[in-house]
């Protein structure tokens, strides 16, 4: 696995993103404006956070389908801790993040201790966590947060949406960890050949526990931002977000079989999807047409990328 090969897919994708931006900008003068682009960044933050950590999960050869449900459960917990338990909002946010992390850790434990394949484990917790969100909330939503809380989801810092800073920080940290540290190399090693990694003394289970916990944390962070952006909690928040995140990750060239993938690829995948959603809408394409095109782009991109290196790294 050389750096050259890694770059291949990302390069193709980058070219595609630039092409898409040019074409979409030509379709509508309102597309390529600073305001619109920053606003799109705001809208893609939640999926982005989840997709970045999902990259790690998929690189280890796993998958996490429960992220949407963790998002919903953390959002409900945030409201319940603050409103029903009367805790300060800062503490409630912290506890909501903990709930998400613990939910992720629980996924990790089922996967490592009981050797349940990640797809099955997280299919199960997908139902469980969403169910807990519904049960705890009793279908009530919590509203009326103090004004400072809305800065996170609706405000700006230095002219850039607050949450976009967060996304940026998380992306850089994740890219550094995956690309340059021992942890990153352990992640790749786990995904390429788990048995070999185990035999060479890597603590594979600990890597996985950490990654699934991080996935839960990312979903909880997305929940806090989402609640701040829409100023209410609902137990159905985040439904289907797992498929959006996975789409961005695989579009970004991460192999679903593990061992291969980069954060930069995931970010390019995210940007391409968001640009298409927004740009096509501005160009007058309806949302049903837009999702048809996104589906086609996903298949074609991977197909083209495969044509460039047909060496069977499927």
């Amino acid at each position: 696995m050389t750096i050259k090969k890694l770059l291949r897919h990302e390069t193709i994708l980058a070219v595609l993103v630039v092409l898409a931006l040019i074409v979409l900008a030509a379709q509508s003068p309102r597309f390529f404006t600073v305001d619109n682009l920053l606003n799109q960044g705001r809208l893609m933050t939640e999926v982005g956070l989840i997709a970045i950590v999902m990259t790690f999960v998929i690189v280890t050869g796993g998958i996490d389908l429960s992220v949407g449900s963790i998002l919903g459960m953390s959002a409900i917990m945030l409201g319940v801790f603050w409103k029903n338990f009367g805790l300060p909002l800062e503490l409630a946010i912290f506890l909501a993040l903990m709930v998400g992390t613990l939910a992720g850790l629980f996924n990790g434990l089922i996967i490592t201790r009981f050797k349940v394949p990640p797809l099955i484990a997280t299919l199960g917790t997908l139902a469980l966590y969403r169910g807990i969100a519904e049960g705890v909330s009793q279908a009530r939503s919590v509203r009326g947060y103090p004004d400072w809380f809305y800065v996170l989801g609706q405000g700006q810092v230095l002219g850039v949406p607050t949450q976009l800073w967060l996304l940026g920080i998380v992306a850089v940290v994740a890219a550094v960890i995956l690309g340059m540290t021992t942890w990153g190399r352990m992640t790749y090693a786990t995904g390429s050949n788990e048995t070999a990694a185990r035999f060479s003394g890597l603590r594979v289970d600990r890597v996985k526990l950490l990654i699934y916990s991080a996935s839960g944390f990312a979903a909880a962070l997305a929940a806090v931002i989402f609640v701040s952006r829409v100023s209410t909690t609902r137990s159905d928040m985040g439904t289907g977000v797992e498929l959006d995140a996975i789409t961005a990750v695989v579009l970004g060239g991460t192999s679903i079989f593990g061992g291969r993938g980069t954060i930069i690829g995931t970010l390019l995948g995210l940007i391409l999807i968001q640009a298409l959603k927004n740009g096509l809408s501005l160009a007058g394409v309806k949302s049903d047409g837009t999702i048809v095109l996104i589906g086609a782009v996903l298949i074609l991109t991977i197909l083209i990328s495969n044509l460039f290196h047909r060496d069977g790294t499927r």
């Binding site: 829409v230 609902r234 809408s281 007058g284």
Partner: peptide
């Protein structure tokens, strides 16, 4: 949106404001 999803609806309205 093709599903009754609050986030998709919000994103769609946002796009129409821009347009």
């Amino acid at each position: 949106p093709t599903e009754a999803n609050i986030d998709d609806q919000i994103t769609l309205i946002d796009n129409y404001i821009t347009s």
